[in-house]
């Protein structure tokens, strides 16, 4: 499953990032490393971008970017 398809409110773990290098690098530097826990908080009123809680902080990213992030449901 990718992050943009993750239902609002669910907790996931990052599996991998498949985007172009510059994007993957920045996402990982912001803490989206494999194994890191993430929670999809909400999407903006027009459906995009989405707000993700990453460890101790919140990050907004567009669905285009979220699509490159593979996640697994946390259970």
């Amino acid at each position: 499953m990718t992050l943009d398809k993750t239902p609002i409110g669910s907790s996931v773990r990052i599996v991998s990032i498949e985007g172009p290098d510059f994007l993957t690098l920045r996402l990982m530097e912001m803490g989206m490393v494999p194994g890191a826990p993430a929670r999809v908080i909400k999407s903006a009123p027009l459906g995009d971008p989405i707000q993700v809680c990453l460890g101790d902080y919140h990050l907004a990213l567009r669905r285009n970017e979220a699509r490159t992030i593979t996640v697994a449901m946390d259970d």
Binding site: Y57, A60, L61
Partner: peptide, 9 residues
Amino acid sequence: PPFMMELPP
């Protein structure tokens, strides 16, 4: 550039 923005507390 990718839209990546911290939503600070």
